[in-house]
């Protein structure tokens, strides 16, 4: 992927980080975001290593809004991919499709940026490495290409608190 395109995509992503959970343009986003958080439990493997997660979720829809496939870009840790496999059953992708269809009729592929920072209070604060960014737009070793719709991003800071006696 050309650097110019990558920078553009990163700019779009970083500008969308400030969305929070409400989004007037995408009415279904708030519910999707809330549902995502409710079901998010960082897998034990990731808790041991304490990394941040930054990845793109790519959703392919059929013409009638059914989910054809869901994949994560190569920057996602295998444990996170596994977690998403389980979580996807509990997420309402169809409403996302309706959101997008209202804006752009022929879009069948959607990207949802996901960024999760992990912190264990007094012990560890995760960060994103440059390697993560390199893989952010790569799926199965291949840079992303084609026509996509970039949905608002999901950001959470995932914190493990202290033990209080």
């Amino acid at each position: 992927m050309k650097m110019k395109t990558l920078i553009t995509l990163l700019a779009i992503f970083s500008s969308s980080v400030s969305f929070g959970q409400k989004n007037i343009e995408f009415p279904s986003f708030e519910k999707f975001y809330s549902n995502f958080g409710e079901n998010l439990r960082y897998p034990s493997g990731l808790q041991d290593e304490w990394p941040s997660t930054i990845t793109l979720m790519k959703i392919n829809f059929t013409g009638n809004g059914d989910v054809q496939s869901i994949s994560l870009s190569d920057s996602a840790f295998p444990q996170f991919v596994h977690l998403m496999e389980k979580m996807k059953e509990k997420l309402d992708f169809n409403s996302i499709y309706q959101d997008i269809k209202a804006k752009q009729k022929d879009v069948k592929q959607v990207l949802i940026p996901i960024h999760i920072d992990y912190e264990k209070i007094d012990v560890w604060k995760s960060s994103i490495s440059s390697e993560d960014f390199k893989k952010l737009y790569v799926f199965n070793g291949k840079p992303i290409s084609g026509k996509y719709f970039l949905y608002p991003n999901i950001y959470y800071k995932y914190v493990a608190g202290r033990v209080n006696e």
């Binding site: 958080g37 998010l40 209080n164």
Partner: peptide
């Protein structure tokens, strides 16, 4: 001498720093 303890094992903050979820 410790009769109990409590730990928030999972606190989720959104981009605005608001707590959205907790275990």
């Amino acid at each position: 001498d410790v009769m109990g303890n409590a730990q928030a094992t999972r606190i989720l903050y959104d981009a605005d720093g608001k707590i959205t979820d907790m275990d």
